[in-house]
């Protein structure tokens, strides 16, 4: 089970809700992914077009925990405001802190992320900051009281997979809260690799929504995350330089 703050989840896959080809495909993808946590962004409503379709309205919100993000924020103050707007809906206590410090790489601003995390923890939110793979920052976020740390595997939406498995492992080893690998996952192999490193969960969006067949990819990600977790729990063998025979070397009827 994945435990984030007081909440327990069977699924270790957190799914984003952006950029799907259609709501029908999105609903199916969400269903087969067996995710229990869905991320959302908070944006101004177009009040002159109230009938515009909205994915949240098509969702049985009692079946999912909503994880709104603070995307769009460039400062801690902006992130805190977006978090409070999300909470005022009465639908969620969780917040993904996302304070972007660079438009080109979409890498997070470490100082503002830490500041926003400190403040939102004080305000009683369940706080999941999106961070880079910086080991010391992950520790400081944890000391600030966050309920999970979410290091990126590689830049958001890049699909490059885990570019620094060494740092990721350091973050996982030192963590007392769940580590959820967020951003940059491209393929099921990437998701499985994150779980085999010992991550507690994976948050992804574009890898599913941008796949040729998002529904099939949602299933693939679910299976990869399950497989990776089982592999981690089972404990892989050590790597050796030379071969070791699997068949017995005694009793051969040759020679």
């Amino acid at each position: 089970m994945l435990k984030i703050g007081p909440l327990l989840f069977e699924s270790r896959l957190l799914l984003g809700t952006g950029k799907y080809p259609s709501f029908t495909i999105q609903r199916q993808a969400v269903e087969v992914s067996k995710t229990e946590i869905l991320t959302f962004a908070i944006r101004r409503m177009n009040i002159f077009e109230p009938s515009q379709p909205n994915f949240l309205e098509q969702l049985d919100t009692s079946r999912y925990t909503l994880l709104p993000n603070t995307a769009g924020a460039k400062t801690a103050a902006e992130a805190v405001r977006i978090a409070k707007l999300a909470k005022a809906s009465g639908l969620c206590d969780m917040i993904k802190v996302e304070v972007i410090g660079c438009d080109k790489t979409l890498l997070p601003d470490p100082m503002e992320t830490l500041k926003a995390t400190e403040e939102l923890v004080k305000e009683g939110f369940i706080v999941l900051p999106y961070t880079s793979d910086d080991v010391v920052l992950a520790r400081k976020l944890q000391e600030a009281g966050c309920h999970a740390v979410m290091p990126g595997a590689s830049p958001i939406g890049s699909g490059q997979g885990i570019i620094n498995p060494v740092n990721l492992r350091f973050i996982i080893e030192q963590a007392a809260v769940p580590v959820i690998v967020d951003a940059g996952i491209g393929s099921p192999a990437d998701a499985a690799a994150a779980m085999e490193l010992g991550a507690d969960g994976v948050l992804l969006n574009t890898a599913v929504s941008g796949a040729n067949d998002p529904v099939k990819m949602a299933k693939a990600m679910r299976l990869a995350i399950e497989a990776g977790r089982l592999g981690f729990e089972a404990g892989r063998i050590a790597k050796k330089r030379y071969a070791t025979a699997s068949s017995p070397v005694e009793g051969m009827s040759i020679g």
Binding site: G16, Y20, T39, A41, I42, N54, S89
Partner: peptide
């Protein structure tokens, strides 16, 4: 405002009002 405050909150001239909702995002 929370939902329960909508009924009791009165509007005034020159108010700056933001109306936001949940949209798809990662």
């Amino acid at each position: 405002l929370t939902g329960t405050e909508h009924q009791i909150t009165r509007l005034s001239d020159k108010d700056r009002i933001e109306i936001v909702h949940f949209v798809g995002g990662g």
